[in-house]
Design a protein around this nucleic acid. Structure first.
Lengths: 213, 213
DNA sequence: GCCGAGAATGAACCCACGTTCATTCTCGGC
DNA sequence: GCCGAGAATGAACGTGGGTTCATTCTCGGC
């Protein structure tokens, strides 16, 4: 009478998996929960249920709830940083403008601007002021992201007729993207990915006229 | 042996004040607490202690904690909107550029960018995804702010040589300001009010060359 | 001066949630 | 096939925190 199912839907059989797999399962479940109920009311019971696992497993793999949350934040920032680095450290672009286009494309890709992920980002941003650990993770991630954007902008600036204040432009671009993400999250009916991309692009064309071609 | 002090520092005497005063006291205390410990770990005990009042008073004036939080959010958004409206609806500016200058000045004024207030803003933004009530208050506030900025930009656009896409520029400007505020909050060591103002101004000069004078 | 309305207090209550841990189960090595 | 390591479970525990409410206090009207 034992139903054979790949994922053991109704099965009572206990499944044992490596630590890394369980940790990721829990982190992903945490993200879904945060976007559903908010960082301030996520409970361990919800997360473990969402992950389809037992109550005590989170403590087994993360010790404390706070650790799970921190790892969730790290997961999201790392993923973004890896994606951005893949583009900005790549050597196989034929021009800086093409690299820039890839960057914008990436920043407003479905994967990055997915509601679940952005909800998590901003939930932690909102708590960062009062939690040194979150603060540090966010600051480090932002700094890393900013550095590589600045490098690209330096290249692009050198190609322009008029002199460009790379520092100010980088700060402005990063703020613009953050603000667009926020809008995308808070008013998805009013701001769309396509619209946001166009706005970003308008900013860039204003600063680096040569990319207009 | 009874020391007469205006604020009855050590006095045991019970003070009775009008509802509106108590409500504001509690709201201000809530803001300080949120910026200190974060929205997700604010407790009624902390807030009432911070306000120098008794445990039960919050429930007396707000019924539930949730109401106090909502009123706190409303307090912050209303204050901002009133300040912005004072500038953008004023008839006593000699030119649109002057009005624009006043807007930027206001948006990066100490009063608006004060750490306490911005922490509150972003704390609620972070929870807005999962709380329809916060979501609505934020969206309404943003929409109102955007409308009046768009009106000013329409005026400014009409003065330029080349045609300006007012919609995209408004969206961009608002996103830029939000992003700069976020930076100001998360990395106050790296981003300063003056720097932020300069970045905003650079954006505006790019879009509306005529204001450069 | 007295009284009623309602503002203010804080001890007590109760529940939700994080954490613990005794027990059960799985798997690989021998 | 047996055994030990450790992964997984979920009932039970303790506590922190929101809410209630009986009581006390203040003030304005008469």
């Amino acid at each position: 009478m034992q139903t054979k199912t790949i994922d053991s839907v109704a099965g009572k059989k206990r499944v044992i998996l490596p630590r890394a797999v369980r940790r990721q399962q829990l982190i992903l479940a945490t993200m879904r929960c945060i976007s559903k109920v908010g960082l301030s009311s996520v409970t361990m019971a919800q997360v473990t249920k969402e992950a389809g696992l037992s109550r005590g497993i989170a403590n087994l793999h993360f010790e404390r709830k706070e650790n799970l949350l921190i790892e969730t934040l790290r997961f999201v920032t790392d993923e973004y940083n890896r994606g951005q680095a893949d583009i900005l450290n790549a050597a196989n672009f034929s021009s800086a403008s093409e690299q820039l286009a890839a960057l914008v494309q990436f920043q407003f890709s479905r994967s990055v601007t997915e509601a679940t992920k952005m909800a998590v980002w901003f939930a932690f941003y909102g708590e960062a002021t009062s939690r040194p650990t979150y603060q540090k993770i966010c600051a480090d991630s932002d700094a890393r992201a900013a550095r590589s954007v600045r490098a690209l902008f330096t290249q692009l600036g050198a190609m322009q007729q008029a002199a460009v204040n790379v520092g100010a432009v980088t700060d402005g671009y990063i703020a613009l993207i953050d603000g667009l993400w926020l809008n995308l999250l808070l008013a998805p009916k009013k701001m769309t990915r396509a619209k946001a991309k166009r706005v970003a692009w308008t900013f860039l064309e204003g600063v680096f006229p040569s990319i207009k071609a």
